[in-house]
Amino acid sequence: MSHREAALTTPSGPGGASAGDPRSATPLDLGHRASRRWGERVIALVLFGCGLISVLTTVGIVVVLVTESAGFFREVPIAEFLTGTRWSPMYSEQHFGILPLLNGTLLIAAGSMLIALPVGLTSAIYLSEYASPKVRGIIKPVLEVLAGIPTVVYGYFALTFVTPFIRMVFPGTGIFNAASGAIVVGIMIIPMVASLSEDALNAVPLSLREAAYGLGATKFEVSTRVVVPAALSGIVASFILAISRAIGETMAVTLAAGATPRMTLNLLESIQTMTAYIVQVSLGETPHGTLEYKTIFAVGLVLFLITLAMNLLSQRITRRFREEYE
């Protein structure tokens, strides 16, 4: 933006125009100061309003989930909802126990972490401790591309590649199974774990590594016994964020893991997660205002509270246990 343009759009401004423009060498025009001050106030207020939108979003989420769930809990006792082991709101014999959905969600989260945590962390260690700048220049974009692929594409990948593969290894497995969903969710979370953990590893000062080398440690020992412990809070925080994302992941598990709410720890069975249930209801013909419809708000509330708790925990760990090095 040039000074000339600035001068044209704010003719009353004594400051904006005076820089190097001889035509505006008039005496200071103090008469417009009041109006200018008003304009400044309005702008500040508008910008404050923009900031407020984010607070309103949170308030909106909480109000919507709580008020709609309240209607649900008037008809279904909270105790039954939280401890029931059968979930069948759409059948004639209705049961509203969320545990099967929670079971499915946690099964997916646990399965995906078996992939995302070890692969993500070792990738991070490699990137931060071993890789040359040239190798990093190749690997980082690959991880960024993996992170940018839409989740529905991972769902397609699960159904057309991962599931047939699983069925080849374990014949008799159904088309929909938790393992396929867990594997692709794990894959899509690797970049996040790798990138956040790498940031934590990079923040460990070089002097710590040099001291360890000075004592005769090998690169492996320096990485795993000095650098990783020093970055542990950041690594753990990234793990918790990863679990939170796996719990909230929707499309891949909707497509691959099935629609059978079930209490099981068998990854080869069809299950249903909380997110997949919400999608199932909104795709169906359930009329607005019915008890069946209100279930999505109750399930949504549980989902929101779990992910919020994990995000807050992750932030607290980063803040509390960070080792400061100077």
């Binding site: 919507v64 719990i247 909230g248 992941e249 949504g300 989902l303 992910t307 995000n311 932030q315």
Partner: peptide, 24 residues
């Protein structure tokens, strides 16, 4: 509070935004 709120919103599952959009 604003800043914490913004970083927490970044971690809310997208489907929860869908519920919000549906209701609001």
């Amino acid at each position: 509070l604003l800043q914490t709120n913004i970083s927490n919103l970044a971690g809310v599952p997208s489907i929860v935004y869908g519920i919000l959009g549906l209701a609001i």
